[in-house]
């Protein structure tokens, strides 16, 4: 469950037309960066991929978003199951006010998993995948809020990984972090793409260039250009893209 296809997607907040005729295919086991100036629709588009926008009353979507050939906005879709498979990590780390262990185990427990051995193994595996195990293995019962910002963000990633998603969405995951923590997140993204499909919104052009395989440039709700990252950053086809990535505007 990893390939994402957006077909003629139009999104609205009330009368405000925020995404216009978006057509995009995100292949499995790739990292796709969404870039563009503030208000261009990139975070809105990201949230359409796991229906987080459903929480916004005025939000409407037209068109189709398919994950592995299935329309995620079809009536029979169970949104909770979708969000298990399409996890999301936000800009500001948001660990639960629980222990480190309980944060990662939470998703499993609310799914009904009771097997302690299974939970323990899954928690360890997720923390290892999130490159956090070595730092927290001896303090798993400590409050997650006692961790540094960078560690909290990796804990949030571990929490997402614990429920075995196929796709991970990241909305500016490193923008609130110091450069070293940000670098660790980028390194983690590089490791995770072996097994997951990752879509990341970022304002940091250099980060997009470093971590992603493909980059999508959004502007005023439109998808202006979508290409291999190396192509987009060396020879963009669209003048607007060139002006944005060279800092002429935005």
């Amino acid at each position: 469950m990893k390939q994402i296809v957006a077909e003629d997607v139009n999104a609205y907040y009330g009368e405000n037309h925020v995404l216009k005729n978006i057509n995009l295919t995100i292949r499995q086991n790739t990292v796709t960066a969404l870039i563009g100036p503030s208000g261009c629709g990139k975070s809105t588009f990201l949230r359409t991929l796991n229906r987080m926008n459903d929480y916004i009353d005025s939000f409407r979507l037209k068109g189709k978003i398919e994950i592995d050939g299935k329309d995620i906005y079809a009536k029979k879709v169970k949104v909770e199951e979708l969000r298990q498979k399409v996890g999301i990590v936000f800009q500001k780390p948001n660990p639960f006010p629980k222990s480190i262990f309980e944060n990662v185990a939470y998703g499993l427990k609310i799914q009904g998993t009771k097997d302690k051995k299974f939970i323990n193994e899954r928690v360890e595996r997720s923390l290892r995948q999130a490159a956090l195990w070595a730092e927290v293995k001896d303090i798993l019962d400590k409050s997650a809020l006692s961790l540094s910002g960078g560690q909290q963000q990796r804990l949030c990633i571990a929490r997402t990984l614990a429920v075995k998603p196929s796709i991970i969405l990241m909305d500016e995951p490193a923008s609130a972090l110091d450069p070293l923590s940000s670098a660790k997140i980028e390194e983690l993204i590089g490791e995770l793409k072996e097994k997951y499909t990752i879509v990341i919104v970022t304002h940091n052009m250099q980060q997009a260039a470093r971590v992603s395989d493909r980059t999508a440039f959004f502007y005023v709700g439109e998808l202006v250009e979508y290409n291999k990252t190396s192509e987009l950053f060396t020879n963009p086809k669209n003048k607007q893209t060139e002006n944005y990535i060279t800092g002429r505007f935005g």
Partner: peptide, 8 residues
């Protein structure tokens, strides 16, 4: 960190 035309 020039890119695109600037880098070329």
């Amino acid at each position: 960190n020039p890119v695109a035309g600037d880098l070329r």
